[in-house]
């Protein structure tokens, strides 16, 4: 992937992954970048969310359609495409489960294609156990208690997942991420 492209405006050669032409400064047609590349981040499971947010706002400050109200139709369209893609990627990277999925997908494990079943019985039992606790929680206090418990399990799962990613154990990471997605759902339902 070392393709060189020409700026649509001034025709000079631009870096294939830049948002603007180095020469004339005009916004470029979006070329495909994955979610991590957009923000210039390493493809790692644990990322600094503050860095992500700063980078997100920095990009939107330059590329948002409000900056191109009086520009040519081309520039307006490019800005709209960039801005949409940045919003979508930011949303995906902010969330643990979808961020894990992006990494897994690039290594051949696609959540949409694989079945969403649990790899092992123990995992299923853990989830069922928490689920029934959730159902039994009636008042605010017990809800809060179970909510905290889920949060703890989520934190543990994230740490475990991080280790699996480091070891490049994609299959195991994939299974654990399915568990994480159920946990996150449970957390949202109880609060």
């Amino acid at each position: 992937m070392n393709s060189k492209e020409n700026c649509w405006n001034c025709k000079s050669i631009v870096k294939s992954k830049g948002f603007f032409c180095d020469h004339c400064g005009v916004i470029q047609k979006p070329s495909y970048l994955d979610e991590f590349e957009i923000f210039g981040l390493k493809k790692e499971f644990l990322i600094d969310l503050n860095v992500l947010e700063d980078k997100y706002l920095e990009l939107q400050s330059k590329l948002h359609p409000d900056k191109f109200v009086n520009s040519s139709q081309n520039e307006k369209d490019f800005s709209n495409e960039h801005s949409s893609r940045i919003n979508e990627s930011y949303k995906l990277l902010k969330n643990n489960v979808s961020r894990a999925n992006i990494i897994l997908k690039s290594n051949g494990y696609d959540l949409e294609k694989e079945s969403k079943t649990f790899g092992d019985e123990k995992m299923l039992e853990d989830i069922m156990d928490l689920q029934s606790k959730c159902m039994l929680a009636e008042n605010e206090i017990s809800k809060k208690k179970i909510g905290n418990e889920i949060k703890e399990v989520i934190d543990e799962t994230i740490n475990e997942l991080n280790l699996l990613f480091k070891k490049k154990s994609w299959k195991e990471a994939y299974n654990l991420n399915v568990k994480l997605s159920y946990l996150e759902k449970m957390k949202n339902n109880i609060s």
């Binding site: 939107q60 948002h64 409000d66 109200v69 009086n70």
Partner: peptide, 12 residues
Amino acid sequence: YELMNGAKNLLL
């Protein structure tokens, strides 16, 4: 005003 004169503030 910002739209016509170069937006300084980002509105999301």
